Computed example of a mutant assay.
Amino acid sequence: MTDQAAKTNLLVVLGATGNQGSAVLKHFANDPSSHSYKLRGISRNINSDASKELAQLGIEVLQGELNDLASLKEAFSGATHIFANTDSNALIFNAISQPDILTEGQTALSYAHDMELAYGKNIADAAASTLTLQRLVWSGIPSPKKCSGGKYTKVSMWDVKEEISEVLYSKPELKGKVSTILVGIYATMPIKLPMLYAPQKQPDGTYEMALHMTGDRPIPLADLDTDLGPWISALFKAPPGTKLVGATENLTWKEWLSKWAKHNNVRASFRRCSDDEVLAKVPGLGDSLLEIASFFEEFEWTGGSTGAVYPEELRKRGVEVSVGSIDEQIARSDCSSIL
């Protein structure tokens, strides 16, 4: 349990029980001597086990809804710092599993896009009305549509992150207060989304990782548990407008696979899978996944965006930021579910 009484700032984290929100809150809660923040997490269900776990760490957990502006304004009350993020996947898979919520002409992707953009506008409006606010960090993703000049148009769940970013940066009340974290591919993806990323055991006892890409293009892999909290802390200290790439390491998937195989004492190989295999893995999302893979192959993670920096560059600018290693992340991961 941490004592927040003497803390002078209030950090409010949206999506408190999600991958990103919980990683940020736990970082600050587990190292109280390193910062001056009281901590408040916003959750849709304050009675969930995940919310109760956060409360046991001394974190104030409040109920909040992204589709309710009044709820968000209350959640941000007194905040000096905000970490804002939205969950595209939850919206998409909810629409896929409940097609009755779609109106005529809507797809799961278009529904999710419109809902998430509305969430983002509420976040911006609520933050703009928070008079105590000093800094806000938005968790974004490069827009394939924007970066490719309209070549890739089927990754709306990424495009909307950039649309929300534009809303945040355009608010006069938020001028000089907003920065962005471009979190890389979660290092836990092979465990969390095994149907897409996990090496699969073959009849001969070896493992095969099949992705719709060559596996030779370096991409940023992010260890959220170790690094996301320090990245957010660094962005609060860096000049506003900083765009940080959340990369624990830049690795190709073949390099990741080699590390994974070594740690688990197995033999593994990489194969570029076919379009049909991708389309069959996640019905309703196959076209988007194909475009994501093509976008990776053609563009770096930032999509050629000017001004985006990696942690090492931020350090050169005088902002302290720590980074772990993918070897350490793999070593502490429980891979029993995919072995």
Rank of each mutant, 00 (worst) to 15 (best):
M157C: 14
K145V: 12
Y119N: 11
M157E: 14
L133P: 08
A118Y: 14
K161L: 03
D125R: 01
L133W: 00
Q134M: 11
V160S: 11
W158N: 09
D159R: 00
K146Q: 09
I181H: 06
S148G: 04
I123Y: 06
I164Q: 05
K161C: 06
K175S: 03
W138P: 08
K175H: 00
V155K: 06
R135Y: 06
G176K: 00
C147H: 14
S170T: 03
S165V: 09
S148C: 07
T132E: 07
M115G: 05
T153Y: 13
I123E: 09
K175A: 02
I164V: 15
S148R: 01
S139V: 01
S139N: 06
G149L: 06
K175I: 00
G150K: 10
T153M: 11
V178T: 02
M157A: 12
S165M: 13
P144I: 08
S165G: 14
N122T: 09
A126M: 06
T132R: 01
K151W: 05
S139D: 07
Y169F: 09
I164C: 12
A126Q: 07
E166Q: 06
E166P: 00
V178G: 04
I181W: 07
A127P: 05
A126W: 04
V137T: 05
T153N: 13
V155Q: 12
T180E: 15
L117C: 09
V137Y: 12
S143W: 05
T180S: 15
S129C: 05
A128T: 01
S143L: 06
C147S: 15
E162K: 13
L131Q: 15
S143V: 04
W158V: 12
K154L: 11
Y152K: 05
G176M: 07
D125A: 10
G140D: 14
T132Q: 04
E163G: 03
T132Y: 02
E162L: 12
P142M: 13
Y169M: 03
T132L: 02
Y119E: 15
T153I: 13
P144Q: 02
A124R: 01
G150D: 03
K146N: 03
L168S: 08
T180F: 15
S156L: 13
E116A: 11
V155G: 07
R135Q: 06
C147E: 05
G150E: 00
A126P: 10
L117S: 11
Q134D: 04
V160H: 13
P142S: 15
K161N: 04
W158M: 14
T153P: 11
L174V: 04
E166W: 03
W158L: 14
Q134G: 09
S139F: 06
T132H: 00
E116D: 15
G140R: 04
G140N: 15
S170V: 01
A127T: 03
S143A: 09
T153K: 12
A127Q: 01
N122P: 14
D159G: 07
I141G: 09
M115D: 02
W138S: 09
A118R: 01
T132A: 06
G140W: 07
K171T: 02
L133R: 10
G149V: 04
K154V: 08
